[in-house]
Deep mutational scan, measured.
Amino acid sequence: LSCHYCHSLFSGKPEVLDWQDQVFQFCCRDCCEDFKRLR
């Protein structure tokens, strides 16, 4: 899998964000929080 925010590859459990009828996967909570802050 690749992170939607930083595009790094990861194999662990992703942080998942269901936002505006789309599902995004992130490598860590920090990337998820940064993505939400920018949107």
Rank of each mutant, 00 (worst) to 15 (best):
S11T: 05
C31W: 00
E15G: 02
S8M: 15
F24N: 09
V16L: 07
F24I: 11
F10R: 02
S8T: 14
S8I: 15
S11W: 02
S8C: 14
V16N: 08
F26A: 02
C27W: 00
L17M: 10
W19T: 15
W19I: 14
Q20F: 13
S11E: 04
H4S: 14
K36I: 03
K36C: 04
W19F: 15
C6E: 01
R37V: 12
K36H: 06
L17S: 04
V23K: 14
Q20V: 10
P14E: 04
Q25T: 10
V23N: 13
L9Y: 06
C31F: 01
F35Y: 05
F10N: 03
F35A: 07
H7T: 12
L9E: 08
S8A: 15
S11F: 03
S2E: 13
H7Q: 06
H4C: 14
D30E: 09
L17T: 07
C3D: 00
R29V: 13
C31T: 00
H7K: 10
C31H: 14
K13Y: 03
W19Q: 14
C3A: 00
F35C: 02
C3M: 02
Y5H: 07
R37E: 06
Q25L: 05
E33I: 04
H7G: 12
Q20W: 09
E15K: 02
L38R: 11
V23E: 14
D18S: 10
R37M: 06
W19S: 15
C6K: 01
C3K: 01
C6P: 00
Q22W: 08
E33C: 05
F10M: 10
F35Q: 03
F10A: 03
D18H: 07
Q22C: 12
R39E: 05
S2L: 11
V23T: 13
D21R: 07
R29D: 11
D21H: 05
F24C: 12
Y5R: 13
C28A: 10
H4L: 08
W19M: 15
D18A: 09
D30I: 04
D21E: 06
K13C: 06
C31D: 02
L17E: 05
G12E: 10
C27R: 01
V16C: 09
F10C: 05
S11A: 03
C31M: 01
S2H: 14
Q25Y: 10
Q25W: 10
S11V: 03
L9K: 06
H4W: 11
Y5C: 09
Q25N: 14
H4R: 12
F26N: 03
E15Q: 06
F24R: 10
C6M: 03
D34A: 11
K13P: 10
F26C: 02
S2G: 13
F24A: 09
Y5S: 10
D34I: 05
F26V: 02
E33K: 03
F24W: 10
K13S: 07
P14H: 04
S8Q: 15
Y5Q: 13
L1P: 02
K36S: 08
F24L: 13
E15S: 06
L1N: 14
C6Q: 00
Q20S: 14
C27M: 02
C28Y: 02
S8L: 10
C3N: 00
V16R: 09
F35D: 02
D34M: 13
Q22L: 11
E33T: 06
G12C: 04
D34K: 09
G12D: 04
S2I: 15
V16M: 10
R37A: 10
L38I: 11
C3Y: 00
S11Q: 04
V23R: 15
L38G: 13
D34E: 09
K13E: 09
D30L: 09
D18V: 07
H4Q: 11
Y5M: 15
C3G: 00
R29Q: 11
H7L: 11
L17K: 03
Q25K: 12
C3I: 00
K13A: 08
R29L: 09
C28L: 01
F10S: 03
L38Y: 08
S11L: 03
L1G: 08
L9C: 05
F24T: 08
P14I: 04
S11Y: 15
F24M: 13
D34Y: 12
V23Q: 14
P14W: 02
F24Q: 08
D30R: 10
Q20E: 15
F35V: 02
L9A: 11
H4N: 14
G12N: 05
F10H: 08
D18K: 08
H4P: 07
W19Y: 14
E33Q: 08
R37P: 06
G12K: 08
F10I: 06
L1T: 12
G12H: 05
K13D: 10
Q25R: 11
L9M: 06
Q25S: 10
D34G: 10
L9S: 09
K36W: 05
Q25V: 10
D30A: 10
C27A: 01
H4F: 12
K36V: 09
E15R: 04
Q22H: 14
F24P: 03
D21F: 06
V16Q: 09
D34F: 05
H7I: 11
H7C: 11
C32S: 04
E33G: 05
R29S: 09
L1A: 09
F10P: 08
C32K: 13
H4D: 12
R29I: 09
D21G: 06
D18L: 10
G12F: 03
K36A: 07
H4E: 13
H7P: 03
W19G: 12
K13H: 08
C27K: 00
C32L: 08
D30P: 05
C27N: 01
D34L: 07
V16P: 06
S8H: 13
D30F: 04
C27P: 02
C32P: 02
F35E: 05
D18W: 07
V23L: 13
E15H: 08
L17P: 04
S2M: 14
R29W: 08
D18Q: 11
D30V: 12
L1F: 14
V16W: 04
L1K: 09
Q20T: 12
Y5E: 07
V16F: 04
C32T: 06
G12P: 04
E33V: 07
V23C: 14
G12Q: 09
G12Y: 01
V23A: 10
S8V: 15
V23D: 06
L17R: 03
Y5N: 10
E15C: 09
F24E: 05
L38E: 15
E15Y: 07
C3Q: 00
S8G: 14
V23I: 13
E33M: 12
V23S: 14
V23W: 12
L38T: 14
F35W: 06
R39D: 15
Q25I: 06
Y5D: 01
C27H: 02
D34S: 05
F26S: 02
S2P: 03
Q22K: 07
F24Y: 05
R29K: 09
D18I: 08
L17V: 08
K36D: 06
F35H: 04
C28E: 04
E15D: 05
D34C: 10
G12A: 09
Q22D: 15
G12R: 05
C27E: 01
D21Q: 10
V16E: 07
D18N: 12
D30S: 10
S8R: 15
R37K: 03
F24H: 11
C31Y: 00
F35S: 03
K36F: 06
S2W: 07
D30G: 10
L1Q: 01
H4V: 10
R29H: 14
C28I: 01
L17A: 08
R29P: 11
D30N: 07
C6S: 00
H7W: 05
P14D: 04
F26Y: 03
Q22V: 15
D30Y: 05
D21V: 03
D34P: 03
W19H: 12
K36G: 08
C32Y: 11
C32M: 13
D18F: 06
F10W: 04
D21P: 05
C28D: 10
C28V: 03
S11P: 02
L17H: 08
R29T: 09
F35K: 02
C3R: 00
V16A: 07
L38K: 11
Q25C: 07
Q22N: 14
S8N: 15
D34V: 07
D18T: 11
L38V: 09
F10G: 03
D21S: 07
